[in-house]
Design a protein around this nucleic acid. Structure first.
Lengths: 186, 186
DNA sequence: CAAGTTATTATACATATGTATAATATAACC
DNA sequence: GGTTATATTATACATATGTATAATAACTTG
């Protein structure tokens, strides 16, 4: 029992119009009315699916982060030796961010909802926690330590964003690794 | 040449109404119209001073952070010996957050603008940078390292927020110190 | 393919936003 | 204290939001 074809079509045209509008203007200037005008659906239809623009974007960010999780899971095989408190495959994160700049850009935009950042933060926390769990020399995982590490990584990505994502993925990898080494995180 | 008395009065009544409304409902439910109804000023007057509710709140957060900076500057005398990469007086931060919970709450709320978090982040970055500058064994300050440390601290505060600020200031001090010690940040 | 289900539309309404103009009230200043 | 400067108001307008109802169209299922 799949989703109704009409719904699929509606969401598809909505997505196309949204991506299009995002290239013309910043997210905070995109209204429900305009989004519906562009995609040729009624506002009523939009509200039957989403509460507002923010909730709509949350769904987009959600699938972006699902994709991130998938691509990080895939890299498990290639993962470096984990001889410390933070799993070095965390660096594969930079790859996904760089390849999806335009969406991660939304998360860090001044006019965006904090909800997007929170979603990102919570995902990274899960990754950090999972990573710590695989390290047998850690007796007990401290929630605050997880938050500390997770948000620290987001700090580096945020700085990358402020610099217009000019640094390459490799440079970012190197930067993170050198900071982690300095603090003997692993 | 001080500010016009009329302006002062307008902003004062606005502030009173805002604080009042904040106790009745969450920030995202507070509209310009309602804020003006409550404070007895015209919407036109509001728009002569601020672009929208978010910009208005930004001004409030701005002065909150100014106050934070002041109170941290005052603690310079009492500061602990800085024998490492991060100034331990950073812990006085918790005091200000706890004593102004209701405002810091705004910063971390899902429906808030990311602008508030950004403001907080940038202030903490300045503190971290200043702190690193006083440590003579640091040859050159790395921007990404500053972002890493600054946001890491925000991660701990955010976790405190998610726990409803239940932990005491002293507990938070202890938590931060033990994490910093583990990573030999100082 | 027909019957039943449900997504979408047309239309409307109360309220909110952001901007504009002219009139009025209030503060600043000499 | 009277004049000048300007903050505030009253009113209005085009557009946006979120919700509601009944009618229509499109899809699903047997």
């Amino acid at each position: 029992m799949n989703q109704d074809l009409r719904v699929v079509k509606t969401k598809r045209t909505l997505q196309t119009a949204f991506i299009q509008l995002l290239q013309e203007k910043t997210l905070d200037k995109i209204t429900v009315s305009e989004l519906c005008r562009s995609s040729g659906i009624t506002r009523r239809t939009f509200y039957l699916h989403y509460q507002n623009v923010t909730k709509y974007v949350e769904e987009i960010i959600e699938s972006l982060l699902n994709e991130l999780e998938q691509s990080m899971r895939r890299t498990t095989d290639y993962r470096l030796t984990t001889n410390g408190r933070l799993d070095p495959r965390m660096i594969y994160l930079f790859e996904h961010v760089y390849n999806n700049k335009e969406f991660y850009h939304i998360i860090f935009s001044r006019n965006s909802s904090f909800a997007y950042y929170e979603m990102f933060y919570k995902r990274i926390k899960v990754l950090v926690r999972n990573s710590m769990e695989t390290m047998d020399f850690i007796d007990e995982i401290n929630d605050f330590e997880v938050s500390y590490q997770a948000n620290a990584i987001l700090g580096i990505i945020m700085e990358w964003y402020y610099g217009g994502f000019e640094k390459s993925i490799d440079e970012m990898n190197h930067i993170l690794m050198s900071v982690l080494k300095r603090y003997r995180v692993f």
